[in-house]
């Protein structure tokens, strides 16, 4: 009988430990969010979104150029990554058996695991050095490479969630495989695919390392794709390690903006994927 008691105790202990693990993980989250919110809100104002950075010693100013820069960079990245990613995803889900498919799938997972700083070094080599120019294009290339595998794998996963009956119906009606995929299966999974794209965008919008030596930074507002361009993340980094309190405050405001973007994207993703999952009834 004591053995039973012991087993029960051990079991409760284990359950308790798991619950504690959850709390342990959520404590830093709460801490990070608390500081980003409290310090960020203090520093955030309309100027932050509409004004340019000011030189050392003048207080105020904002990150208007960096915000536009981040939008341009992620836009460029999406332009490159969405077609490659979605089409690769279609390929992976439609031709699951072949040797080439496992190679591509492995490549996608590998690429997903390559440290972003390494992708930055690569982009510097192929898109900065040959042109003797830091540029928004080089930054977009680095971020795009990071997005491709995320989009490819989500697209694949979500296409596989589409009920087989839909495909069989289309094929039975005499549609070619391409027609079945692009008129029936992809549209059915579209909310999920878009979610994957949004999540990938959110991830690269928060990237700093690959931008340090590709898109570099710019004190001024620019929309020239062949010029260095500012981004919120690089600007936050510059400000964070500066000795000026004014700049450090701006770094917190920038962090708040980044976290808000991530939060909204994750929330959207959660809602959209739950809809796709519901469709399949799980």
């Amino acid at each position: 009988m004591t053995r039973m008691v012991w087993r029960r105790m051990l079991s409760s202990l284990f359950v308790g430990a798991c619950a504690i693990a959850v709390l342990v993980a959520l404590v830093p989250l709460a801490f990070v969010l608390f500081f980003v919110l409290s310090r960020g809100v203090q520093a955030l104002n309309l100027d932050f979104f509409t004004h340019m950075p000011l030189p050392v010693g003048e207080s105020g100013g904002g990150m208007a150029n960096s915000i536009v820069g981040t939008l341009i960079l992620t836009g460029l990245a999406a332009l490159m990554a969405v077609p490659v990613g979605v089409m690769s995803g279609v390929y992976l889900s439609e031709f699951p058996g072949s040797r080439f498919t496992s190679i591509v799938r492995f490549a996608a997972d590998t690429l997903n695991g390559v440290p972003s700083i390494v992708i930055g070094v690569f982009a510097y080599g192929v898109a900065v050095l040959p042109f003797r120019q830091f540029s928004a294009l080089a930054g977009g290339l680095a971020l795009g490479i990071m997005m491709i595998p995320i989009i490819a794998r989500t697209t694949e996963e979500l296409l596989l969630l589409v009920p087989g009956a839909l495909r069989e119906g289309a094929l039975a009606l005499g549609a070619t495989r391409a027609r079945a995929v692009f008129t029936v299966i992809v549209p059915a999974a579209l909310p999920g695919i878009i979610t994957g794209i949004v999540l990938a965008l959110a991830r690269v919008a928060g990237e700093t390392a690959p931008l340090l030596f590709t898109s570099f930074n710019n004190r001024f507002f620019t929309t020239e794709l062949t010029q260095p361009i500012s981004s919120v993340t690089v600007q936050v980094f510059t400000y964070a390690i500066s000795p000026y309190e004014d700049w450090q405050r701006q770094a917190w405001a920038g962090a708040l903006v980044l976290v808000t973007i991530v939060f909204i994207c994750s929330l959207m993703a959660r809602l959209a994927t739950s809809r796709v999952a519901d469709m399949r009834g799980r």
Binding site: L79, P130, F131, R132, Q133
Partner: peptide
Amino acid sequence: IVVVCVTACGGNSSEPASTSGA
């Protein structure tokens, strides 16, 4: 994408841009 890729990756062996791009 093709345009972006060509402009971004194509220049590996090319000479430095004739106008200093800076």
